[in-house]
Every structure is written in C-alpha cells, then in structure tokens.
Design a protein around this nucleic acid. Structure first.
Lengths: 342, 342
DNA sequence: CTGAAAGCGCTTACAG
DNA sequence: CTGAAAGCGCTTACAG
C-alpha cells in the first residue's frame, strides 16, 4: 500500500475487485479470461466490481505469466527509408494499426535501417517482447526474416519474398496479373508500340510486373523487343531518365507502362519535355494508385494495389500464426483505375 | 523448468546469469541498473555471463515492479485521418520513433478517430500501459489531452494547443514568424497586391499564419484589405476554391500566400486555369515544405517546418516530463525555401 | 464452481 | 559491496 510515486494514484488491482465483489482473486481472473467455470452470480458481481473500481488489467503482470506480450511489431527494414516516404506506407500502417486495435493489440513501430539497428531490434524481438512481426521491406537479402524465424517469432511479410521457398508467410498484390491488366488496357486503346519502365529487377515486384508486360505482348502476337524495355529503381528521377532513354531508342513508341506511379511522374515530365502529348501521342499507365497518381497532370491511369485489404490480411495471417497455425501466403487481386493518361 | 510451449526455447533469466557469474540475482540486477555499488570484478563476471547466455531483460517483470512500461505512445486523434495522409506525418513519426529508439524506448502507434476509440485508448493509457504520450491532433476541443493530464500521464502535443493557458507541453514551428518571412519575400519581389488563402481559423496555425501576413503588410504601410483574404481548410480543393474566389474579387492580385502546400497545389491549378503565369503574373508562396511543394509545377517556394527537429524536441520534452520535470513549450524557427513559384 | 497457493522474472530496501 | 528475502499483479493447476 506504499505510494512510491505520490503524484500517481494507486490503480485498482485484481485484489480490489475481488474484495468489492466478495470473491477470491482467482475468480476475478477467471472472469477476465472469459468467464468459463464461473457462476452467473459471481460473474455479475465481478463485472460490477470492475465497473465500480475502474479496474484495468495490468498487462505486465499478465505477460509475465502467460509469456505473451499482447503486442505486435511493425518492422521496417529499409536502408534508404524509401518506403517510408511512399504514401502507400501510411495506408498500410494505418490499416495494420486498426486491424490490430480491433483485437486490443497495440502495434509497436520499429525502424531498422542500419545493420546495427537490425541487430538490436532482432534481439529485442527475439527476447519475446512482441508476439509477432509485420515485416515491411522491399529489399532482397534481408537477414531479419530468417533470424526471426529461427527464434520462432511469427512473421508476416508485406510483398513476395525474393526466395519463394523460404516458407515466409506473406501477403502481396498480384503484380503479374496487375501488369497484364494494364498492358491489355493499352492494347485495347489501339497502341502497338508499348514500352515499359520496370522496377528494380532484383525485387519480385520488378520481375513480376515485367513478366506480366511480356505475357500480354506475347499473347497479342507482338514480337518481343528489348529496345522497348528500360529499368528504373522506383524513384521519380529514374522514371524520367529511363523514359528519355526509351525515347531515344524508340521515338515511335505510342504507349508506356511504368511500374510505379512515382516513376510515372518522372516519365510524364520527360515526355512533356520531349513535346509528346498525353495520352494523344503516348498513353501512360502507372502502378500502385498512390496519391502521386491523382496529383499527376494529367491524372494517371494506374493499377490499384489493395493496401487496405493487404494490411487486414497481414494482421489476420499473423494472428493465425500466433495462434499456432502454419504460415501461409495470400495473393490479392489488383484493379485497373482509368483516368486521363491512358 | 517446465516447457509449456515446446516450440519456444526457454529464455535465459537473471537466475541463469547469476549462476554463470557466480553471484546473487541481486548483484546481477544491480549491474543491469547501471553497475552502482558493484565491485569491478563482480560487474565483469556478470557482463561476461550476460554475453555468454544471451540474456535480455524481461521487461514485463521489470515493469511490474517499477510501475513503468518503458514505452511511449504516438497518439493520433484525428476524426478525418487527414493528417495521416500528410507527407509530413511520415517525417514526424519516423523522427519520434528514432529519437525514442536511441533511448531504447519502443513507440506504440495509436489512432483514436472516433469518440469510442478515444475512450478506449484513454483508458488504456491511463492504466499506465505507456509512460508518456506524443499527441498529434490539429483539432481544437479535443478532450483527450485533458483526460490524460488528469490521469497524470505526461503528454507532449505537436503544435500549439488552442487553449494556450492549458499548460499542455507542446512543440511547434513558429507559424507567425514563418508567414512573415514569406510575405516579406513576396514584398521583396516587388509585389504589392498580395492575397492570402488562410488555414481554418479555428486552429492556432490558421490564426497565426494570417497574423503574420497582416503583420508584414502593416509594417510595409499597406492598408489592410479583407478582399485579399479567403479561407481554406488545408485541403487541396479548398485551395482552388478560395483562389477562384480571390481572383473574382481581386483580378489585379500579383502575389498569393497560401497557408499550406497542399492548398497551394489547388491554388496553382486555379491560377493556371484562369490563364495566369506563375510567377510572372502571380507569385505564389506555400507553407510546410512538404513533398507536395516539390511535386508542384512550378516547384513551390515555401516555408519549411523543421519536422525533424520538432520530433526530436517532442521526445526530449516528453522524456524530461517523465523524469519529473515541469511541462514546457518549444517554438522552433522556420526557413524560407525559394524555388520557382515566387 | 471456487478458494488457497505457487510462481512468472525482476527490483529493492534491509542487513551484514 | 553483496546476499537473502519480500513483493510487484496476475494466472493456473490443485483440491475440494
């Protein structure tokens, strides 16, 4: 009953509730756990005592016994905090926070940019301070997932892992199918000299979107033509550079599929600078449907990634894994959003 | 020594460390607390045992005793998740996460959009589950800060509170001074019919930026003229609408100070639509230096809010408060960023 | 259904 | 400087 900190009132404990309800602490705890093996009368007395005292469980005490923290981490392992500047990131983070909040599970945000931070955070997580990890990293060769798996920490990644056989649970949009949709759309506009600016080809997203582009061209009987392909790194500038390169190689191109909206921004600038009208001379399609797509002039026709569903699925899969189920992969469909650029 | 969960290895405890080091658990704990009142030999033995066993403190056990959680919350109380879509938000969130990580304090992200969520989260926080709160909310009349204060939870707000006498600790950019800088810049360009699109006038930011605008005009001996003032709500559309209104009232305006970059985006579109060249006919200045400023065409001259410093100061003030210091307010200077629009 | 009791892993006066 | 011991608030077999 000591008040080590005189400023802060002592918070009611299970003991206070038990006294008010006229039952033992064990019974209070049982009610807290869901009310099994408790008589209706006792349960009612306890619930009323909880309301009366304003009792809220002390999670530290609970965690000490259960070995569960009751929290999850949102871990960003991105050397060049690129993804953090992506508007999609907000949607993803918000979605995960809310989906978890619905289960009364707080989300810890962690950023492991450097190798040093990765070591520190991996250690922290491996010590059992969180029950599971939502892993966000667009880069390949990231050791964090493997280390976490070794420590038996449930992990769900956002996006396909580079090593598909790793058994890492993940949730991703169907990149290949999305690219196919876009290129089919450009085709339906009557375009035949369709170029593409790809993402980095050491990422699954970059590879799959290029594959989708090729699929449709082949399907349409158009001969493969590498002069129509240039590679970017998802940055705005790289989109402009790659587009200028394409324009030099193929001044006759009449459509351009750019593997991200941000790069498409750069592409639009480069095309405009070269005097091309959009979409009259060159139809342009992006990928992501980020806020960059709406801000573009003209507004960008693009492929929507279902970020909202992605975040909810990530949480669902993570909770399942924490509950003991096996890891699983979820691939979600994308959607063509038609605006002005194509 | 029971293994309730056969999958997860038992993690080393302070007991294991004590055994390996050949000391008592009390001594291990003392080393963990900073090594005071411990002989060098004992400290060395303990540290070596910690390395050897891979020991990591169980924070739940520690928190149970200390009454401190060792974590902090980043609480967003925004009905229309507007701020969440603001690129500045990312910078702020990242800065806070990293500043806290430097003190080994994890950040819990919480979003209390509805009244219901606010109640739930206020209750959670008041129960002592976090040691302090970084509060982000641009809106007035938010009861959360007061409730948290009543529960003696340290709180630091981002931005000036609407009720300045509330005693709420806060960190903010100097809005009034920033607005002054911009209007002085427009003046230095030779402009004399300078209009403004304000932010919502029920927010301190909206009020202060308008005050700064007026300060400089008065200081320059220009007569006050309300036909040069229109009000927006920080959204892009409101920037366009307000600008069209100004253009109708004052077709002769030669400069425009817009109280946020996003609204400036809308203003740019409205001006262009009206056939005005920027900056030749109308010089345009924004506020924030968000990514929207760079994405604008022409690139936006604006006032940079020092988000990085803001986040670091928020954390510093919060930790001070947790450490028992009184609340304090920090106002940070802004900076004029000159680009193409003015 | 319910109470008494042990114990989770740690910190902290208290003696020595 | 250091060990033994109490206790933080909760959960969970164990009896009854």
């Amino acid at each position: 009953m000591t008040m080590s900190n005189p400023v802060r009132r002592r918070r009611p404990t299970i003991h206070d509730v038990a006294r008010v309800a006229g039952v033992s602490r064990g019974t209070v705890s049982r009610v807290l756990q869901g009310g099994h093996h408790v008589s209706p009368a006792a349960a009612e007395a306890v619930n009323s005592a909880i309301r009366q005292t304003g009792y809220e469980v002390n999670r530290h005490a609970r965690s000490l016994i259960t070995g569960r923290s009751g929290s999850a981490a949102f871990l960003l392992t991105e050397p060049q905090e690129k993804f953090f500047e992506d508007p999609n990131f907000n949607v993803l983070l918000r979605g995960c926070t809310q989906a978890l909040a619905a289960h009364d599970i707080p989300l810890l945000l962690m950023i492991a940019g450097s190798r040093d931070e990765q070591r520190r955070i991996t250690r922290y997580i491996s010590a059992g301070h969180v029950d599971g990890v939502l892993l966000v990293s667009s880069h390949t060769g990231n050791p964090v997932a493997a280390q976490l798996a070794r420590a038996d920490i449930p992990v769900v990644a956002c996006g396909k892992p580079m090593a598909p056989a790793s058994g890492l649970a993940h949730v991703a949009a169907d990149d290949r199918d999305g690219a196919q949709r876009m290129v089919r759309h450009l085709l339906s506009l009557g375009r035949r000299r369709i170029a593409t600016v790809t993402g980095p080809l050491d990422t699954p997203g970059g590879v799959d979107r290029l594959a989708g582009y090729r699929d449709v061209l082949t399907e349409a009987g158009l001969p493969p033509d590498d002069t129509l392909i240039a590679t970017g790194d998802y940055s705005r500038d790289s989109g402009a550079t790659a587009t200028r390169e394409l324009l030099t190689r193929r001044p006759d191109l009449d459509a351009l599929f750019v593997a991200s909206d941000l790069m498409a921004h750069g592409a639009l600038a480069a095309l405009e600078q070269a005097g091309r009208r959009i979409p009259e001379d060159v139809a342009v399609g992006g990928f992501d449907d980020s806020t960059a797509a709406l801000a573009a002039r003209p507004a960008l026709t693009t492929i929507r990634q279902p970020w909202d569903r992605i975040s909810h699925e990530m949480v669902r899969v993570l909770l399942a894994q924490i509950g003991g189920e096996a890891t699983s992969a979820v691939i979600l469909p994308t959607e063509l959003i038609t605006r002005e650029s194509a």
